[in-house]
Design a protein around this nucleic acid. Structure first.
Lengths: 343, 343
DNA sequence: ACGAATATTGACAGCGCTACCAAGGGATTG
DNA sequence: CAATCCCTTGGTAGCGCTGTCAATATTCGT
């Protein structure tokens, strides 16, 4: 005797098909590509499905079709609010699509990334979104073998695994320093925490811009491998001031550090920007309303997430974007904290 | 002729079994419950699997076993950094387990939540983590019908759907106001943005504490449905000052607002805490290093995430926690911003 | 109006794995 | 020594859906 309901009691596709008076395969098509049906059958299946409260069994679909509708996402941190914006963009697009997101946290470890990548490989995701361009050779090999669209996000560089969306952290670093130089500053410090590859490239921008101006000095550079925080901004800044008492400006690799510097200046009664210029990175929301308002490099994190999912899904559906690499750029938001000394 | 490899070229369980010289079902057991095998077979299957690079096909497993190893997580926001801490806790525990997380964003809409819940229902998750206790009746019915462990997080209250981990936002509100009252303040303002149910209960605490002290005054209360931000903190505070020029203190429903208030005080040269006491909520990292340091209510967000996943997984495996409701409490972190006027 | 091209539809045969139940084998007991 | 138990192992029979390809309706051009 033929079962009518699934073991857990829900209607199966066969039952929907029977109620609609069509074959199971036709009903199946309705859920995947409704346009392929004639209008009459489409309506019949639709109402039958609604009547039975039918919901497709994803596991069965994945098994039969040999593919999933899962997009894997690998990010290095859930704490850093830079990524919450990216994630919001990713989920905003994905939640309106047929695809679901499988998120994993690499914790800034490329070995962990490699391991998680292998796990993904087993799940045969329909697409993949990975952070950055510094994967291990092994990771790149695995990705290449996965045979699905892949987008590298957060930055752009040579030799994409497949597609990319981001911006040049190096150029952004150059832009920040050029601005400070243009304001007449000479002793410009660099503050960095958790020097991940992207932060490293911002540093490269700082270094090259300073070198070009003949102002590079190792004493100006203070970094730590410890994760970033506002408190750490104050600590690093205090350290830097000890080394370079006549410091004029400081470039922080992110806004948390910049806020920490601002607080430390307040604590030491160093007037900003008169005696100390501050530039941050990412332009988090609070930068504009700080007192004084803080200069920062605005990055399009939400759009990055949106683009990444859009690119992946379009590629999955054989509508690859014309250009596999999208540069979302950045914008230097000049505010009070870095105005010219004389201004 | 029997296929050896899967369509996409990977080894199948049958092949592992053949190489190990056991039946497929024995090999299957190895991956689910190794202890059930004799030591010799266990080793044979293990090395065969390694040799072939075998990875179980999750879709086939889910279909055959009629259950998944997915834990659904519903949170209302990806922007609010309160949730990034919770998520970190969730992922930290889940990534070390056999379960994977399926995250969805309800965007503070209980209707969206209801819709997403139905989607989850179709996927038959092994467990569920939902934010808050204010689900619609329909949502509660769906959850009840899902027949899987469920943890409500962020707050505790009567009638859990299943399990709960959180704390009392009402009590926390009371604690914050009691502190301000103890410092001798009378005109204590309330600043709230996006009044979600938990924020509402903090407000209830404020209201009752003020009423008990005979100090409740509608003019002291300023709220907006707009999402919270540092800038909004300044805006709301400015509004409040216009209504109550002789304001003495302000309780902000979160730390972003509190930081905005601090900046606005700076802008208006109102000395904190001498002329204005400030208390925030959540105790984000920057609160301690602000100048002056900002008083806040510390909440155990990371632990909440960890507990939630632990409770769900243990319940899935029939080891339900002794107590279905865990109160993680809160701690008032008293700092400079709320010290007594005369201190 | 007729054949060709196109749009719809259906039958068959699994996808890779596990639930269920039964059987074999060794240890234990009276 | 037989009866009993438990531990380990295997056979059978799908889980609910979709790929492939052939079969059938429909439309079109001339």
């Amino acid at each position: 005797m033929g079962r009518k309901r699934t073991q857990s009691g829900e209607a199966r596709l066969t039952e929907v098909a029977k109620l609609a008076g069509v074959s199971p395969i036709t009903a199946s098509r309705f859920f995947r590509n409704p346009e392929a049906l004639s209008a009459s059958k489409r309506e019949r299946v639709e109402s039958a499905a609604k009547e039975l409260g039918y919901v497709p069994n994803l596991a069965a679909r994945a098994l039969a079709s040999q593919r999933s509708e899962v997009i894997g996402v690998m990010i290095p941190s859930l704490t850093n609010n830079v990524f919450s914006d990216v994630l919001r963009g990713i989920y905003d697009v994905a939640q309106g699509s047929r695809y679901s997101i499988q998120l994993v946290n690499t914790r800034y470890s490329i070995l962990q990334e490699e391991k998680l990548l292998r796990l993904f490989q087993a799940q045969k995701p329909a697409g993949l979104i990975v952070t950055g361009i510094n994967q291990t050779a092994e990771s790149r090999a695995v990705m290449q073998a996965m045979n699905c669209p892949i987008v590298q996000i957060m930055e752009i560089g040579p030799e994409p695994v497949d597609m990319m969306v981001g911006f040049s952290h190096y150029d952004a670093g150059i832009a920040a320093i050029s601005h400070l130089l243009a304001q007449g500053h000479k002793r410009i410090g660099f503050l960095g925490a958790r020097m991940d590859p992207r932060v490293q490239r911002r540093f490269d921008g700082y270094r090259d811009a300073m070198k070009a101006a003949g102002l590079l000095d190792q004493r100006l550079i203070v970094t730590t491998p410890v994760p970033t925080s506002v408190t750490m901004g104050g600590t690093l800044f205090a350290d830097l001031l000890t080394r370079v008492p006549d410091l004029e400006a400081v470039f922080c690799v992110n806004d948390d550090l910049a806020l920490g510097v601002l607080f430390e200046c307040e604590r030491r009664q160093i007037p900003v920007p008169e005696k100390m210029a501050i530039v941050g990175f990412n332009d988090l929301e609070f930068m504009a309303s700080a007192v004084p308002s803080l200069t920062s490099v605005r990055t399009n994190r939400y759009e990055m997430g949106r683009h990444a999912v859009t690119m992946v899904t379009e590629a999955i559906e054989d509508r690859r974007p014309a250009d596999p690499v999208i540069d979302l750029g950045f914008e230097l938001m000049i505010r009070q904290s870095s105005l010219a000394k004389g201004a």
